[in-house]
Design a binder for these strands. Structure first.
Lengths: 122, 122
DNA sequence: TTGACATGTGCATTTCCATGCACACATCAT
DNA sequence: ATGATGTGTGCATGGAAATGCACATGTCAA
């Protein structure tokens, strides 16, 4: 049971990673989409295709970079960002792998509940 | 290129699913953890182990249920919730699968950027 | 040097969501 | 019937994050 609690704590720790938090913000997803369609681009180019201010795009890109989803490189006076597809897929893969193992070890295969069942008096 | 935009839109649509949003809230993760260690339990039992009010636990459970992570069933006057481990893993698997395919098709294998590179005049 | 361009950061404002308190509804016991 | 228990919902509040503006920094061209 302590092992069970440990496994549960580990799952929560995994799900609380900055990766998922970075991906659950509509505006950040729009930034990601813009990068997907345009390929590597600087902050200004991305901001020109979105309603938010450039400074907002800058901060979103920083968050995405901290999560390991994109990578940025100075190119002269511009700052070019690009999606790190391998890191994105790899991050999700690691997350899924651990969650799968832990759910199998923690809450056995069976967490079934009858779809709808009203308790009748025996 | 339009295909690329379509693929990008699809990715964003996938990531914007309620699943990830439901999992990126510390309090909700605590609810999930409580369910992991205790197994199926009613709202009151979960609330008794957490600092939040019962009504808050109720709403978190509703969010988790809408995301397909837990399932609830009336049992007399109580409402028993349980984690749907298969749905949790399955949801993450589908998400990962589509993201992998789309990133492969959308932004080819190559989103490489030199670690640090200053543009020199040719 | 000067000026134009590109980006990042401090700060105030706004927006979204979690939280808590009531109250209403349903169920079980008496 | 009455009361007690369990749960969900409307509404107001608080807090954390996103947003926008202004300014500072750094870079390229003249």
């Amino acid at each position: 049971m302590t092992a069970r609690a440990r496994a549960a704590a580990r799952i929560v720790e995994l799900l609380d990673a900055p990766l998922l938090r970075a991906l659950t913000e509509p505006a950040r997803l729009e930034v990601l989409r813009a990068l997907l369609v345009s390929g590597p681009a600087d902050v200004g180019a991305i901001a020109r295709t979105l309603p938010q201010h450039r400074s907002v795009i800058t901060r979103h890109l920083q968050t995405l970079e901290a999560a390991g989803v994109v990578r940025g490189a100075r190119e002269g006076r511009r700052h070019v960002y690009a999606i790190d597809g391998a890191a994105l897929v790899g991050g999700l893969e690691r997350l899924l792998g651990e969650v799968r193992d832990l759910t199998a070890a923690c809450c056995p295969p069976t967490d079934l509940i009858p779809a709808t069942r009203l308790r009748r008096r025996p």
